[in-house]
Computed example of a mutant assay.
Amino acid sequence: MMHDPTGRLLLTPVDKEAPARVRRLRELDIGTRPEPALDAFAGRLAELTGAPYAMVNFIDEERQFFAGLHTVDGGTGGTGSSVGRYMARDHGYCPHVVVRRKALVLEDVRDFPRFAGNPVVDEIGIRSYLGAPLVDRTGMALGTVCVVDVEPRRWGREGLTTIKTMAAELVGQIHRREDGGI
Rank of each mutant, 00 (worst) to 15 (best):
D73E: 14
G181Y: 13
W155E: 05
T138P: 09
R26A: 01
G31H: 01
V145A: 07
T144M: 10
A132L: 13
V14N: 03
R44T: 13
W155F: 07
T49L: 11
A116E: 13
I126Y: 01
R89T: 06
G75H: 07
M55I: 11
L160P: 05
D179P: 11
K102A: 13
S128W: 00
G143L: 09
V99T: 14
G75A: 12
A67M: 05
H91C: 09
A168P: 10
T161S: 15
H70D: 11
T162D: 03
G75K: 01
L25F: 04
R26Q: 04
R177K: 15
V99Y: 06
R24S: 01
G43I: 00
A88K: 07
H96G: 06
Y129H: 09
G80Q: 04
T79G: 12
A51F: 03
L142A: 07
V135P: 07
L38D: 06
E27G: 02
F65W: 04
L38Y: 08
V150H: 14
G75P: 02
L28Q: 06
V150T: 10
E107Y: 08
C146Q: 08
G77S: 10
G68K: 03
N57T: 15
V171I: 01
I59G: 15
R33T: 15
T71G: 08
T162L: 08
Q173E: 11
Y86T: 04
A88W: 09
S81T: 05
G125I: 06
G78T: 03
F65D: 01
D149K: 01
T12S: 08
V99L: 04
D149E: 04
Y53N: 11
L48M: 09
I174P: 00
R8G: 03
V98D: 00
R85D: 14
D60A: 04
V98K: 01
P52E: 06
T165H: 12
I59F: 08
C146P: 11
S82D: 09
A132V: 08
G117L: 07
V171K: 01
A42W: 00
R24N: 05
